[in-house]
């Protein structure tokens, strides 16, 4: 048998062709389509595709495609704060009072005990455009600086920040969004480490 016809020659050939086709297809979907797509409800593995709701409910691509994209494209890929700030959405503040406004608190809290990670800066402002004080205080966080024994284990278990982050707010894989303040005399900085 000719060596060139052996499986070792044909396998890479098939592979290469497959690659080209895959690449072309995905490139078409991503760039030529120009748009970012969301999985339709019928295929999200939660909604019953045979249920009558599929035809009635708003598709995520219809609801979310006008909103600004999340910079690291996590969660449902929407930058919710930006959407609110630039006015793409203007969600109701109250269903009972017409002219109510959010009580926005501009107060940053530093969590310095983060071992070798950069320190955590908690911005009240970003949270109070959505939430009331009593949503977190005192049921989730005590109103005392340093009074909350927060650690990543608890957060991953759904306590403290993990009550929302990872469930409805950006996920816990986005370490540096919270751990955002580098220590001055840090021996390890995460940007330099590769």
């Amino acid at each position: 048998m000719d060596k060139r016809d052996s499986v070792f020659v044909r396998l890479p050939l098939t592979c290469a062709m497959f690659c080209v086709v895959t690449f072309a297809l995905s490139a078409t979907i991503v760039w030529a389509g120009g748009a970012f797509t969301w999985v339709p409800l019928a295929k999200d593995k939660i909604h019953d595709p045979e249920g009558p709701a599929i035809k009635i409910l708003q598709e995520p691509s219809a609801g979310l495609n006008m909103l600004p994209l999340d910079p690291s494209k996590v969660g449902n890929k929407v930058d919710w704060l930006k959407a609110l700030a630039e006015g793409s959405i203007n969600p109701l503040v109250s269903i009972y009072e017409d002219d109510m406004e959010m009580e926005v608190l501009d107060l940053d809290i530093m969590f310095p005990k983060t071992l070798e990670m950069p320190m955590v800066l908690f911005p009240h402002k970003k949270h109070t455009v959505w939430l009331d004080c009593e949503n977190c205080h005192d049921s989730i966080f005590k109103m005392k600086k340093g009074g909350n024994p927060v650690d990543m284990y608890k957060i991953l278990n759904g306590e403290f920040c993990g009550k929302c982050h990872g469930a409805v707010a950006f996920p816990l894989t986005e370490c540096l969004r919270c751990h955002s303040v580098a220590r001055k005399n840090a021996s390890v900085t995460h940007k330099k480490r590769k």
Binding site: V78, P91, L92, S94, I95, M102, W130, L131
Partner: peptide, 11 residues
Amino acid sequence: WFHRIRFRCRV
């Protein structure tokens, strides 16, 4: 996501 477009969390 659907409700968040229309209402703030506090509602």
